[in-house]
Nucleic acid binder design. Structure first.
Length: 203
DNA sequence: GTCGTGATAGCCT
DNA sequence: GGCTATCACGACG
């Protein structure tokens, strides 16, 4: 069996909504000293640059969101609600601040390692169904902010065989403050996947 | 099963 | 000082 390719920088260096859709079904890999953990990405959201009021970059460049202003194909990891981390991939051209939030995955490899990192998950489906949960299960924190995900390292994304699935779009979660951008249908997930986040069916 | 609420701290005004 | 790209828990039934 041929080794899967790591998604190249050109994959991320294009329209953010495109990237968000195309990431569905791809394999997110977390290499740790304790072993390899991987999930199939089943849910994403697009945050489309300075005009998108839901995007952190809409209030200008800061220490926190600086990575988003840089080269595509890097991880933008931030801390939220005083407790959780969220994982994003920087998109578009260098200098244009946009990113895709990875909201949920389907566990593939390293399930035991994920369970150890997320003792509170009662069922397998609770391991990675939500942006905060996903980061817990994969041991992702701000140490990985800025990491290059276009080559093998602690964090990267592999291409996958083209599986057949239907993509559903809906409003993004938790962005009610974003004015006219609140209702943009920039959340995408794999139809029927039991691993999408808990608020999946709200629209 | 669904609903409401509290936790908790970094970030920005 | 207010807000946040969330989650877990307990109260219901």
């Amino acid at each position: 069996m041929k080794e899967p390719d790591v998604l190249p920088r050109s994959f991320y260096a294009r329209d953010t909504i495109d990237v968000a859709k195309k990431l569905l079904g791809k394999v997110l890999v977390r290499d740790t000293p304790a072993g390899r953990i991987s999930v199939r990405i089943v849910e994403t959201e697009a945050y489309c640059g300075p005009r998108d009021k839901a995007c952190h970059a809409s209030r200008g460049r800061t220490e926190r969101n600086g990575v988003m202003f840089g080269e595509p194909g890097h991880a933008y990891v931030y801390f939220i609600y005083g407790m959780y981390h969220c994982l994003n991939f920087v998109t578009e051209r260098d200098g244009y601040p946009a990113a895709v939030l990875v909201r949920a995955g389907e566990p593939l490899e390293g399930v035991e390692a994920m369970r150890a990192l997320r003792r509170k998950a009662k069922k397998p489906v609770d391991l990675t169904s939500g942006p905060g949960r996903l980061c817990m299960a994969l041991g992702i924190d701000r140490a990985l902010n800025g990491a290059d995900v276009c080559r093998k390292g602690p964090l990267y994304v592999e291409d996958s065989e083209d599986a057949v699935f239907e993509v559903v779009s809906s409003k993004r979660i938790g962005v009610d403050y974003a004015g006219e951008y609140r209702d943009k249908p920039w959340r995408f997930y794999i139809k029927g996947s039991p691993f999408v986040s808990v608020r999946a069916d709200k629209n």
